[in-house]
Structure formats: structure tokens, C-alpha cells
Design a protein around this nucleic acid. Structure first.
Lengths: 201, 201, 201, 201
DNA sequence: TATGAATGAGGGTTCATTCAT
DNA sequence: GATGAATGAACCCTCATTCAT
């Protein structure tokens, strides 16, 4: 029986195992949807036993939460980087914000949909914690203080601008003839500038 | 035992039975969520046998679709009514649109969330068929032709405005200290006017 | 509402209705198998209401029984006709019997399988009533009395010959390279003659 | 309450579990028929949870297949043993074949009917793979080569002989006054000898 | 004679989770 | 840390049959 399947447990650093499990889950979720993916498939993809999964996650839902956190963190990192590297001018910052968001979005729509829409009762409260919106609100506030624009309710306007961008990208993706990335960015930027009453560059 | 089971089939007009089933389903879905509600519970609530459910709906998912259609139709009706009764002035029409949407929304958030977010693979394409957006796009276009505003891409702007409103309402609902209905309407109307470059009344 | 579906009940002679129902059932059973065919499909095919079915048959199984009877009767008729028209010579009668059976069989395998194998716990006792075997047994007995052959147990030999033929035809049908009709008949006839110790013509 | 539910999983070697499940299924199928037996009853009889069944069989049909395979293997074993132990004489071998088959058959009619007739669309093609027929055909061919008899089409004759035996045993079982085992064997053996034109011993 | 809405028992199957090893 | 056999509640759906009209 020397040819028998390699049964020896191969202990790995927890961090790695956890990531492998998450990768497996994400890949499967992306392909088949959250509900349609079973824990059995996840562990098969990750090449571990059923029980191992429950060593790292309390429930199946738990992985999705972890995936969401990981996604948001990645997104914010990109945003911070772009903003830090970019213009000091307020109007320019808005441009950067739009450009970065659209690009990041388009590069990971599926992933985004997965972690935000695939499960959970559309947890309305979640948006309150949306770090991306928080960042935009802060940006708007700072710009207002600097006199770049006037805003009655930064938080709310941030929400509206965020959802407008979100919606535009989604819609373009669903359209029979999607806009080009550049067109989309231009369009949204124009919308943002108007909504903030910034002089159209 | 006055409650002895009444076995005789009580035929009802199909339309009524179907509505009763839908009402039962909606009520349950609202309370417990779509996935957490079983067909068994629905028929119990509607006081019919299990098989009867499948006389009117092909699958469990089918009811949700029916619910969505019913919801959209009701919404559009309200919108059309308000628009027909209201101002002839373009700017005023936008105001009406915003007011009607926010109100209708707030009056049926739960129902809205149910039919739009609770299930379905976040059907992105669905938005393409969103009648409400369609109506707004038309409104924008007509206003543009009438010279009330200028718009580069009516459809896209409609999408962005729609999602902005949608997001604002949602956010307010989730907030620890929600805005008043009037405040919300005022805020969004202001946003719309700016985005359309209408003179702030 | 003049265009509404023609609701008027069109009473038909019972005999006809019953036949239509049987035809519909047979056609469906042949296409999809007995178990996989629902009463609902039968009545749809026969273009009557569910209840009408139960006016003519006590249960679903009942139709299959009726179908079987109809099949056997048809088969026996053919046999009787061929035998009556044919040879007076005993050996020739056996030939006719084989030829007629093989032909009739090949012309209606599907139907035969349906009524004999598709349902029922392989009702062993049914064979006792098999009219075809009965006829063969009688033929054998008469031939024996006439001195055409000697047989220890006509009934049993009839059974064996019958099943031998049956098996041969079935096997040929399942074979990758089926025998021709003529070959099959020749082969079986030879087998019969040997088994009855008739001089090979 | 000594009978308090023992919840702890009692792991057993897969081979054993599988066999227990098969035994339970066979016993139930024999008693109530395949269709009338539910998976729930099987697992109850085998004293395992419902899910365990699906650990070993993909579907309910799957068990029946397994049962059939097990039956055929057992049958062939008996046949090989008897043939190996018996006569070297060709005519004697036929006798042994008949005797062994009849006996084995009578000892397990129910089981035989179960695995061959109870389900499946009377899978005609299955006979092509019938190992018992294959063995008989081989025997006939070897005998023919050895000059023990002449045969035009060994395969077909094997089929006919096999079905003749099969039919005879079935018929006897169904008869109001069944033949004795010895009578049956004698009768069939005589039939075989005639059909092969062997001198009646 | 014919209808068809209603019934509801019943079935097969899935899968997240546990726990003894 | 890792395993994977076992669990069992829960679920969706089918369909033969009935009966008031």
C-alpha cells in the first residue's frame, strides 16, 4: 500500500492555512455563489479535512465576513496610496478619488458583489461602517473647510456621491454597450464636480 | 373540538388565492428573511395545503419574483400619479420626483429591501430594466430638450441620481440619528438641483 | 371574452373516451416510462380534465392493466389468424407460430416491454394466465396426440419454448449486430424443431 | 430510560457499514418492494442516520445496483465451484449447469426477482452482460469444439436455454401445484439434452 | 358526463456541524 | 493541529386522488 494517498497531516502556520481556506472559499463563491458553495467543496479546494475548516472559522458565514474585511482593507489601501501620491489641489483630489474608485471597482466587480451583496440581509447598518464612504466624507469636509466647496451635510453628500459612482459603474457593466473606462471616469467626474459646484476644469 | 380539520376544498378565484399566497409569503419574508422562510410556513400562513402553493408558483423563488413585480408596479403608479398631478415646471418636477421617491421609499423600506436585495445573485442586469430609472431618464431627457438643463448622458445621470437618492435614504435609516423626512427630502433635492445645475430655488 | 378557451364539455361515448385515454397513456408511457408519466400528463395529452381519468380508471396502475389486456388480445388475434390460414402440417404449424411471434414481437417490442416489464413486482403469477403460452401448450398437446412429437410435460415445454423465443428476440435486439429477421426466425425454428425432436426440414 | 439516544458517532470500517446498509436495504426491498421502501426505513433498519446512507450510495437506485452486482457475483461463484468440482464429461456438465442453476434459483427467487425485475427500465442491454449466459455460451462452444454437440449459434442458443430454464422455474413457482425440485431439474435437463441433440442418458 | 382547484402524505437529498481518534 | 465518518434536522417539491360544482 505504499501508493496510498498521502495521509500525513501537514501542519502549517495558522496564518497560511487560514488564507488558503479563504482563497479557496473566495474562488468557489465567485464561481458558484455563496449559497451554492458547500463547506465540503471549500475544504476539497483547500485540500484539508472538513474539521480543519472549523478550526479557523466558526461558521460558513464567517468566511464571507473575513472575505469582506480583506476586500475593504485592500481597497482602502489603494485609495490611500493614490491620494497620498497625488495632487494637493482639492478638485484634483476628487478626480483622483473617482479615478481610483472606478478602476479598483472595475478590476474587482465580482469580488465586490460577492462580499457586499451575496449574502446577509442586505445589512443596511453595514454601510455606516463603510470605510470608503468615511474617507470621502472626510475629504469633503476638509475641502469645505479649505473653501474648495460648500457642503451642507458632508456625510450625506458623501453617501450620495459614493452610491452614484457605484451605480454608474454597475450600470455600465450591465449595459449592452458599456462605456469605456475613460468615458466612465470622465462622466462621473463631471457629475461630481457639478454636484460639488466645482468649476468644470 | 370545534377546531376539527375542515377537509373540504374551498375553491377561490385564482387571483385571490394567488394574492393570499403572496401576502403570506411577503409577511413571512419580511419577518424572517427569504431563505429562512420555508414553503411550509407560507402555506400554513395562507391556510392552504402545500400542493396549492405549487399550483400558483413554480418554485419558492418564483414568489419573490412576483413580489418584486408587484412592488415595482405599485411604485411606478405612485410616481406617475404624483407627476401627473403636479407642476408643469421642470424644476418642480424634479422636486416631485424626489419627494415621491423618498416618501414611497420610507414607507416601504423593508419591502423594498426584500424584493431587491434578499435574493438573486445581485442581478446586475436587473437594474437595466428598472422602470423607475427609466422614467427618470426620460424626464431628464425631456427637460434637456426643453432647455431646463443640459445633460451629457441622461441615462447615466439618471442612474447616478437614482442611486444617490437610494443611498441617502438607506444611510439615513441606518444612522443612529436619522434625518427627518423633510430634511432628507430637502437635502436630496438640493443635491439633485446642483447636479443638474438648476438654480437653487 | 369570446376568445376564451372552449370550455364546453363535449360528451363522448364512453368507449371512445376510454380508448383515447389509453392511447394517450400508452404513448406517454412508451416515451417516458410508466413511473415517470403522471396522470396529469395523460389527461393533458387526452385533452380532458383530471377527474375524467378517474371516471374510466380506478388508479393509474389500472390503465397499464388495460393496456396489457389490449396488447395480449391483439397478439392472440394475429396468432389465431396466421395459424388458421396456414399449414395443416404440425411441423409447419410450429414454423408459423415462431414466425408470427418473432414478427409480432419485433413490431412491438417497446409496447411489449411496457405492458410486461415496466411495472408490477414482476408479477410471476401473470405468466400463468399468459394466453400465448396457453395456446402453444395446446398446440403441443394436440401435436403430441397426433403423433407429431412426444412431450413429457406440454405446459412446461411450452413455457420453455416461449421464453426461449422471447429471450432470443430480446437478446438480438440488444446485440451490437442484431440478426436479421429471417436469421432470427430460422435460428429459433431450428431450436424449436430440435427441442421437439422434429426432423429438420 | 436505558434507551436514551446514543449520540456519539460510532465509526465502523467502511466495508462493514456499506454491507450493513446493503443488508438492511435488501431485507426491506424483499419484504416491501423497492419502490415502497424509503431511504428512511433503510437507515432505521441499519441503525444509522439518514446522511450516512448518502455517504455510501449516491442515490437510492444505487443500492439496488450494488445488490445486483453482489447477487450475480455470488451466483457465478456457485456455478464455477460446481462446474469445477464436477464431471469432465460434456453431457454431465450440462446436467450440472442445469442442476446448479435451478437450485440456486429456487434458493433465491425473491432476491433474484428483486435485483432483476424490481426496478430499471427492463434494461434490455443488461442481458448482454449477463455473466451467467456468458458462461453457458462458453460451455456450449467448448463442447461443440470437443464434438459433444453441434451448434449453429452458441451465443443465441445459450440465451434460449438460459431463458427456457429461467421461465420454467418461474412458471413452476407460480403454478398451483409446483413441480418438485427433482422433477423440475429432470424436466429441464431433458429439454436441454434434446435441444442440444445429446443422447438422452 | 365532465371539470379542475385543492389536498397532504411522502419522498429523496443536502449539508453545516461535531467529535473521537 | 488535523482528520473525516457520522449526524439529523430541514427542505423543496411531486402527484395520485377527491369532490363540490
Amino acid at each position: 500500500m505504499t501508493g496510498a494517498a498521502d495521509k500525513r497531516p501537514r501542519t502549517k502556520p495558522a496564518e497560511i492555512r487560514r488564507d488558503e481556506l479563504m482563497d479557496a472559499a473566495e474562488s468557489l463563491f465567485l464561481r458558484k455563489g455563496f449559497a451554492a458553495t458547500s463547506v465540503g467543496e471549500i475544504v476539497a479546494e483547500a485540500d484539508v479535512a472538513k474539521g480543519t475548516f472549523y478550526l479557523y472559522f466558526k461558521t460558513k458565514d464567517d468566511v464571507l465576513d473575513a472575505l469582506r474585511t480583506r476586500f475593504i482593507e485592500g481597497f482602502c489601501e489603494k485609495l490611500d496610496l493614490a491620494l497620498a501620491a497625488g495632487d494637493r489641489d482639492w478638485s484634483g483630489r476628487i478626480d483622483i478619488w473617482v479615478r481610483t474608485c472606478v478602476n479598483a471597482w472595475l478590476d474587482s466587480v465580482a469580488r465586490h458583489d460577492l462580499v457586499f451583496h451575496q449574502h446577509a440581509p442586505a445589512d443596511r447598518a453595514m454601510k455606516a461602517d463603510n470605510l470608503v464612504i468615511l474617507r470621502l466624507a472626510t475629504l469633503l469636509e476638509q475641502g469645505a473647510q479649505a473653501g474648495a466647496w460648500t457642503i451642507d451635510h458632508p456625510r450625506m453628500v458623501a453617501v450620495m456621491l459614493f452610491d452614484a459612482l457605484h451605480g454608474a459603474v454597475d450600470d455600465s457593466l450591465a449595459a449592452k454597450t458599456p462605456l469605456s473606462r475613460a468615458q466612465l471616469i470622465a462622466l462621473i467626474t463631471r457629475f461630481y464636480r457639478r454636484a460639488l459646484a466645482i468649476d468644470q476644469g
